[in-house]
């Protein structure tokens, strides 16, 4: 094939084609980039903003392909939390006889906890594997690497929306009306996402270097389900341990969700909530710091 190429090239030697003027001239605002060993990116965050469309389109891609070539498609997003809710209600509510929050029906209370749990765990799992999953992109094209894990968190948000609609149906079935606190729900959704993004950034960066962390995530997710108040109310934890219990950031998130959705049936334990917030903030700071420190070597390690 190459000889063809060479002749074609010779035939059309003049470098100025006919199409002159149709294409845009080079943009006036040429930015000068300096690449140097170990040099921190000066306009990191504005660069990230510059790539917001890529973020949107990667998120859209992940959502679009998530249920392609599955038989029941989006129904998967409904079946998993629903069956979990049934099992937890039977095991914790009926067999173990744990109390619900206030007057709230046990299934509603469980589901209000499952929402953030699934949001957190699937965001954590997806984002942690995201860099490895997009290795072909990372070794071929430049963009701020933070876009990749951040976009994969969005997929979990879509599943969350579907689950939220399901919660509305369950509440309607039990004729349970949430209170005014529900206006704070978006804040807690954000908290759950940020809470998963922090550790996910750290783990996904580690995963690039040391593939051991691939095996850590399923374990964390499995473990987390039991040490977080998903199947039961955090009010069953003895008072003197509650602050310590809240060092698990999910405790704050789940309690927050229940407070929003169950309309005051589940009072928020403030010191604990603040502790959870602190832990979330710490992980986010730590995750971003670690990610930024290592991201420029990702392509070499893939």
């Amino acid at each position: 094939m190459k000889h063809v190429l060479a002749h074609a090239a010779i035939a059309s030697r003049p470098l100025t084609g006919e199409g002159a003027g149709t294409a845009d001239a080079p943009q006036a605002h040429d930015r000068t980039i300096v690449l140097e060993a170990g040099r921190a990116e000066r306009n990191y965050w504005s660069d990230l903003w510059h790539y917001r469309e890529l973020f949107a389109i990667l998120a859209w891609r992940d959502v679009a392909v998530r249920y392609k070539q599955t038989v029941i498609g989006v129904a998967w997003a409904l079946i998993r939390p629903f069956l979990t809710m049934v099992v937890f209600t039977v095991v914790f509510g009926k067999l173990a006889g744990l109390p619900s929050d206030g007057q709230a029906p046990y299934p509603v209370m469980v589901f209000a906890g499952l929402l953030p749990w699934f949001l957190f765990s699937s965001a954590l799992a997806d984002a942690s594997g995201s860099l490895i999953g997009n290795a072909n992109l990372i070794s071929k094209v430049y963009f701020p690497r933070l876009v990749v894990p951040a976009a994969s968190v969005i997929v979990a948000l879509v599943d969350f929306m579907i689950n939220l609609a399901m919660l509305a149906l369950i509440m309607a079935y039990y004729r349970f009306v949430p209170g005014w606190q529900i206006v704070f729900l978006p804040g807690f959704v954000l908290l759950a996402m940020v809470g998963s993004l922090g550790p996910a950034l750290w783990i996904t960066a580690l995963n690039v270097k040391y593939r051991d962390f691939r095996y850590v995530i399923p374990f964390i997710v499995q473990f987390g389900l039991y040490i977080s108040p998903v199947g039961f109310s955090s009010s069953v934890v003895p008072e003197q341990w509650r602050l310590l219990y809240n060092l698990n950031p999910l405790v704050g998130v789940i309690d927050g969700f229940r407070w929003c959705l169950l309309g005051g049936q589940s009072p928020l334990y403030m010191p604990g909530f603040l502790a959870s917030l602190g832990v979330v903030a710490f992980f986010l700071w730590f995750g971003i710091r670690y990610f930024r420190r290592t991201e420029r070597t990702f392509a070499d390690m893939m």
């Binding site: 080079p26 943009q27 930015r31 000068t32 980039i33 690449l35 990372i138 071929k140 070499d300």
Partner: peptide, 24 residues
């Protein structure tokens, strides 16, 4: 895609690479 271990480069303007078509 990767950073240099020594030296520096200055680049003016947007860079696009076709290191492999169909990336992504």
């Amino acid at each position: 895609i990767t950073e240099p271990s020594a030296g520096r480069v200055e680049i003016k303007g947007r860079v696009a690479s076709l290191l492999e078509v169909g990336t992504g």
